[in-house]
Design a protein around this nucleic acid. Sequence first.
DNA 1: GTGGTCTAGACCACA
DNA 2: GTGGTCTAGACCACA
Lengths: 131, 131, 131, 131
Amino acid sequence: MIRFRIDKHSGVPAYRQLVDQVREALQLGLLQPGDQLPTVREVVEQITINPNTVHRAYRELEHLGLTEGRTGQGTFVQRSLASVGTRQRATLQRQLVSWIGRARAAGAGDDEMQAMFSAAVREAAEEVETA
Amino acid sequence: MIRFRIDKHSGVPAYRQLVDQVREALQLGLLQPGDQLPTVREVVEQITINPNTVHRAYRELEHLGLTEGRTGQGTFVQRSLASVGTRQRATLQRQLVSWIGRARAAGAGDDEMQAMFSAAVREAAEEVETA
Amino acid sequence: MIRFRIDKHSGVPAYRQLVDQVREALQLGLLQPGDQLPTVREVVEQITINPNTVHRAYRELEHLGLTEGRTGQGTFVQRSLASVGTRQRATLQRQLVSWIGRARAAGAGDDEMQAMFSAAVREAAEEVETA
Amino acid sequence: MIRFRIDKHSGVPAYRQLVDQVREALQLGLLQPGDQLPTVREVVEQITINPNTVHRAYRELEHLGLTEGRTGQGTFVQRSLASVGTRQRATLQRQLVSWIGRARAAGAGDDEMQAMFSAAVREAAEEVETA
DNA sequence: GTGGTCTAGACCACA
DNA sequence: GTGGTCTAGACCACA
């Protein structure tokens, strides 16, 4: 079962953080079609948040076609967002962890690594466009 | 000179996006102490944004000790956020670009790569804590 | 400027009624791209409804790509839903009004006419499928 | 025998959709006094719905004086809602189907036709009021 | 018990 | 002033 966390200082609205976390779990294959999300009440018990905010996040997910709310039963994953196979993803992930080790050794903090990653994604995108 | 971009649909407040972009540029060494930020007027000309919003972002940056407003002259970078040397960063960045190439080949989209990266950072952080 | 009305006894949620009314106005060409919707506060003054409910309707419309909320300015129509030209629509509409006259003369009430219309749409759809 | 259908995304409560469909069938003369409605069990077999929901709809219909539940036998239509004779209705319906053909040819979708119909009904109502 | 809608009201971001 | 987010809490529909 997915566990949510809210960073109040990120500037990102709470409902949006929930949506992003579900999407990320779908992209990582941690959530599969048929899986149940925690009920609104369970989320409220787990993190300090208003039921309406959770509800809004779930509504947004349903709007995206990712989940389905079934009254009296709960909210269920409708479709996957993982386009990479489990094995390949494990390999890629391992390579990233090792890269992070090297970046850390070079003195980089989390923000700095994220900055490099974002820059690299943009750079790679430009290469593709140019080619 | 740094170029700003605003994503209206990201949910992140505009002033916060500006702050984040300056911080990212500092982390990547694209902005160095002494460099000048575009004036409020220049930013307004470049992107559709209210001068007040730019002002607010610059105030925030000054509050963070990252920049300094010099009356009549403009806003200047005060200190760096890049803890990795230029050469090492170039190497790390190159490795990331090549990783992205492999991830793309495996079918991953940008969101999916970002998800893997975030997960890897969290995983690496846990390893450090455990060790 | 579009005027909203809420039928509390219809069983249709209020926010949904607002959405439907905007869509209908778009389909009839009564609202055009660039037109402004009443502000949330204006709607609240016009009909008895909670600002949040109006807001939800407007959010839904934005989600559908039909409108865009501009902070400090208002909510504006983004695209049209009218695929029939004004002149042709006027002709078709006139024919319907005259049909309604005949149906009324035959004793039909509004619900009954609506029932006939729905049935006719379904029937026509089946003919298309069969053909 | 009437066949029910539920549109989960319409926002209209399921029990209300059942009630509306029976009323429509009564208005179209498809259900006549004396006709039997499907039993709760039959409805549950036909569509995915909770028996309680069907019960509630049937209770509502009885409350409206439209049907009568006879213990051990089933639910039967009590009175009609069709005020137009069968022959006249057939004529009116045929005219509508032909109108729909022309509207389709002009490029109108189902929603757009429904919008025109609703507008025409309102327009005709105003004419009556004015006269 | 679970999701869905709505009201009331506060506070923030932006123009 | 206008839209956007969030909390608090009530009530309904459905399983």
